[in-house]
């Protein structure tokens, strides 16, 4: 099966040090790919290069077999959506107006939102469980509700690829599970490919199909999650001792050995 995203010899730097260093990656369609690694290892930068917010100095990126530089701005946003870790939530748009922005790639200067756009936005909001908030200002939402709203916006872009920058960071346990279940639902029901840096390795094990382990701008391991996230890899990655716990259903959990 042809990969939906291919990165070849990709390197990126802001000034002199490489933030991404010679990255090679193939992501299959419909996979949930977790990215783990210490802070500053290049996880967010990787996402930003895949959606062309940052331009790499070396290498190439292909989305559905086509070089990323051959896509127009709107055209690329019809293929790749991104859910950012931070957005100005205090801007007083209503939730419905916010999700409607996901339809921007399908509009032009003269063609603004139409009934079809409203219908799609409504469907996406219902799917993500935020339709009841449609009239509320997005500044009134809790962290978990806001994250669901941002996923609904990404869904309204109708892309096959959704990049999520630490989607469960700063959420409580209930919302962490809720958001990751929603991600799995997107993959299973809509065939969307998700790449998401996740700090909690236990959540990555439970929800992702593939895992990229990054360190100092390089991919050190990439493969099936259960094989990639191993006791040795985690100890080497974070330079700490970890304990491995296996429950009755043979789920594996890792905890720092304090």
């Amino acid at each position: 099966m042809n990969p939906i995203i291919t990165l070849k010899d990709l390197s990126f730097s802001y000034e002199k040090d490489w933030i991404l260093d010679d990255i090679n990656l193939s992501v299959p369609k419909g996979a949930f790919v977790a990215v783990i690694g210490p802070n500053g290892c290049g996880k967010s930068t990787l996402l930003k290069t895949i959606c062309r917010m940052l331009l790499p100095q070396k290498g190439s990126i292909q989305i559905k077999g086509k070089d990323i530089n051959q896509y127009g701005h709107r055209e690329l946003a019809r293929e790749v959506a991104i859910v950012h870790q931070h957005a100005n939530a205090n801007f007083g748009l209503t939730c419905e107006e916010m999700v409607m922005m996901g339809r921007y790639p399908y509009q032009t200067t003269w063609k603004w939102e139409n009934k079809e756009d409203s219908k799609i936005a409504k469907e996406c909001m219902i799917y993500c469980g935020v339709w009841e908030f449609r009239r509320r200002s997005m500044s009134e939402l809790s962290g978990g509700e806001f994250q669901r709203l941002m996923i609904a916006k990404a869904l309204a872009q109708q892309t096959e690829i959704v990049l999520m920058d630490e989607p469960v960071a700063s959420l409580d346990l209930k919302y962490q599970i809720e958001i990751l279940r929603l991600c799995k639902k997107l993959i299973n029901e809509k065939g969307i490919t998700i790449i998401a840096p996740i700090h909690d390795i236990n959540l990555a094990i439970q929800f992702s199909d593939l895992t990229i382990i990054m360190n100092k701008g390089k991919i050190v391991e990439y493969g099936e999650t259960r094989e990639t996230i191993s006791h040795t890899n985690i100890e080497n990655l974070y330079d700490i001792k970890v304990k491995q716990v296996v429950d009755a259903e043979e789920n594996i959990y890792y905890f720092p050995a304090i």
């Binding site: 959606c51 062309r52 917010m53 019809r78 959506a81 950012h84 957005a87």
Partner: peptide, 8 residues
Amino acid sequence: DYAAGIGM
């Protein structure tokens, strides 16, 4: 970043 993400 948000604006760029929706194709601006």
